[in-house]
Design a protein around this nucleic acid. Structure first.
Lengths: 227, 227
DNA sequence: TCGAAGTACGTACCAGCGGTATGTCGGATA
DNA sequence: TATCCGACATACCGCTGGTACGTACTTCGA
């Protein structure tokens, strides 16, 4: 049946063969539908049949473009991730003061993390499906990179000789804190109030760091230990 | 075959019928095996056949004791969770100073989170399998409760009128930070060094908060906003 | 003591899942 | 125009979680 209905290719302006255009179109359709279903029902509860039927193709097409369900998810993951990273980065433009950058970046992240698509695909299913290692690799090139940048700028304000590992650690901590906070914000009865509380809490932590910076307190290599 | 080999019941000292003893024994065997396999290969990659074969029973037995795979997981989850909570709570005994409590509690949590069983079952698979809501409900009664307690004691040091919501927010943030940090510690090339860095970083944040407390800085209701 | 009832499983089976092997058709290429 | 190959469609497979039903063993009341 679907054979009788000629598919409408995506109106690619550029050159390239007609066939390539059709191909890209169906591939994009698969990723589109998969993103929607993964976001709505989660990875495990979404069947390939549902995806290919939604994209009006068959499993043959899916397995022609992707090596399997996980590869398709990875494609969706990358897109969602890069979209989020772009939005955060955009909000950062123009801000010069590192502390302002941190504030603005936090707000942007809290916005992003409140969308079901990002939360479900990147935060919830991402680590479980890709495995933590692959997940981290992906993150390191996009949203997490933004966090690292902000943390770097912020901590550079105090002119310590802060090694890269420590910086990564700080970034990890903030990223984890914000992800967890985002989850609770998104599922809260009053998300806006919850978001304000999160901003307040993290802002307080930042103010604490800022205070130490101004006092010229050195970064500890470990926790105070009097044993 | 297994019918010919009489099962050895767990030597319950207490009363209760012989049959109940046998029953409890097989149930415990199921949870034991499930915990091992879930921790080793993850929830999705562990089949019920593998579990029942490991426990030397059949699916009939499993479905007699549990309503399904998820219910079995929940049973495992609870046990692992409570075990972890107990260990953290134990490490807290004797500590009186809230800042010391925070330090000790952090160390205990970092220890716990480095074990594959807790990490895989509670942190990785937990939210995805149970759903975030159920996951939060479970956590709220055990490990997370400890975090809340520590945060409460710490923030009470500065005598603000800190409302409960804000406290929960702080606890969520710290819990997320520590979970994420724990994951990176466990997968690091040098876990001990990574753990020290995490302790240093979070200790620094705590020091910042402490500094603000000593300065008598008030909790902000939101981030500084000059717009 | 002896049957009836219920518990604690075992057995057989099913629909749906991800994945694969193979067929087919139309556009690109020479 | 003949040929080839990419882009799918079709048919099928093994495995999975889950269910229906059968059965042996216990417990308990008469």
């Amino acid at each position: 049946m679907s054979k009788l209905v000629p598919k409408v290719p995506v109106p690619t302006v550029s050159g390239g063969s007609r066939r390539a255009s059709y191909s890209a179109s169906t591939k994009r359709a698969l990723v589109d539908v998969a993103e929607r279903l993964f976001a709505e029902k989660g990875y495990a509860a979404t069947s390939l049949d549902a995806i290919v039927s939604g994209a009006r193709v068959t499993k043959g097409a899916l397995y022609h473009h992707f090596s399997g369900k996980q590869a398709l998810f990875e494609s969706v993951f990358e897109r969602v991730e890069q979209e989020a990273a772009k939005r955060i980065q955009k909000s950062l433009r123009g801000e010069k003061d590192p502390w302002r950058k941190a504030t603005v970046g936090l707000r942007a992240f809290l916005d992003v993390v409140q969308e079901t698509t990002y939360r479900r695909i990147v935060i919830q299913d991402g680590p479980a499906v890709l495995g933590y290692e692959r997940y981290r690799e992906q993150e390191e090139r996009s949203t997490f990179a933004n966090i690292v940048e902000i943390v770097r700028a912020t901590l550079d304000a105090g002119s310590w000789d802060l090694d890269e590992d420590m910086l990564q650690t700080f970034a990890r901590i903030f990223f984890g804190a914000m992800s967890s906070a985002g989850e609770s914000v998104a599922t809260a009865a009053d998300p806006e109030a919850a978001a304000r509380r999160v901003e307040g809490a993290i802002g307080f932590l930042l103010a604490g760091v800022q205070s130490l910076v101004e006092q010229g307190v050195a970064m500890p290599s470990t926790l105070g230990d009097d044993a």
